[in-house]
Design a protein around this nucleic acid. Sequence first.
RNA 1: GGAGAGCUGGCCGAGUUGGUCGAAGGCGCUUGACUCGAAAUCAAGUGUGCUCGCAAGGGUACCGCAGGUUCGAAUCCUGCGCUCUCCGCCA
Length: 426
Amino acid sequence: MLDIKLLRENKELVEVSLKNRNIKIDLSVILSLDEERRKIIQEVEALKSARNRQSEEIGKLKREKQDASVKMAEVGKINEKISELDGSLAGLEKKLNEALLLLPNIPDKSVPLGKDEKDNTLIRTLGSAPKFSFIPKTHWALGEALDIFDFEKAVKIAASRFVILKKAGAGLERAIVNFMLDVHTKAGFTEIYPPYLVNGRSMQSSGQLPKFADEAYKCSEDDLYLIPTAEVPLTNMHRDEIINEDSLPYLYTSYSACFRREAGSYGKDLKGLIRVHQFDKVELFKFTTPETSFNELESLTLQAEEILKLLKLPYRVIELCTADMGFVAAKTYDLEVWMPGINAYKEISSCSNCTDFQARRANIKFKRKATGKPEFVHTLNGSGLAAGRTMAAIMENYQQENGDVIIPEVLRPYMGGTEKISVGKA
RNA sequence: GGAGAGCUGGCCGAGUUGGUCGAAGGCGCUUGACUCGAAAUCAAGUGUGCUCGCAAGGGUACCGCAGGUUCGAAUCCUGCGCUCUCCGCCA
């Protein structure tokens, strides 16, 4: 959420932001709602002030056993006017709030301008793609041959875009998650195991609602939503809190399953583990002060990259342009891993500084020592990494001509020393 | 699921014959005094949002949430939420 004061004082800035994001919203409607609202506030509060003074005098008269009926009648009239104004004020504030909840975060000045994903910037490329003396297979071809994936049974049990992992496939998933958590906790991130179901307020705070309701699985009986990412519960851990400046930054890492309806992605990444309704992810999350958040974004991104480096997977870092960035982000780096079977780079992590956007929605502040005043914190999140896509990348990069898959060295301790998954004996 | 108790400021905790209660007191915290320094002691200060104002400051709202009664509610009424205890059921 944006500060309405920012909108009042710097409409221009917000307009440019919307234009760069390729979003059309009429700000003048919002501003006139705000103007009307403030006008009514002044009116109604003057009346309330009068009422309070009168009531005090009525109390005084009654204690002195004098007649107060004239004043009581006066206040009665004031009250009629007050309840009328309060009514229209509530309506205005509701409308204003709904409008504000639909405004995206303002991109940082450093973010490249662009019209679509073609305008994203390549920041760096690391690792070298493996050389194959044969045509590398896709991870789903490998997985079915190894008998560690079963998509058909998953459709029977659930629906399309679900997967069953079997034997060494299930073990590899578990190994990847544990490995990632170990790396991050050793780096000082506190591990959190969050609820997978969250209430509507939490979804609004982190930015999923109201705009992206289509993307979420909802349990309507209970007003609870399956989390699309651990970012949602993590953002809300400190909702409605005022944190001591000295205890910032808070660093969290969290494994969770993630659930996404993938509405509107028909025909995209139909096969394999790239785009499924349920996947595992290890998330990185930070609460920071405003002045440190952009540095913290750099180190958060490096922390996610560390996993790819340790797994020796080739990847590149992309800075998203204004038009390709998510709703809540002010600046985003995507990590894209090389997938030889698909013959493309695929997003495996997205690291964002959300500045005070989520903090304002979630009402998360810290008390600045210098001023003694509360200010909104900054929140940052990043995948560290998406486990399913990591498994896919490992399989495609570590495949052998006969269809076997070598296990990256750092994962072997997590798989009882297994060095490879072999055809016929996974 | 059934029965009961409770939800007050960073924390603990007064306040339930409605009025001078944004709210006693304690703890904590900040500043100052004392001290070589610390502790102890003493003094003062110490919630948040909105709104008006250049500012100083003013107004208003908030005692779980939403309504209601009343000239006036933390205090009365209704509904909801949450926490705790006991019983039942259960991984």
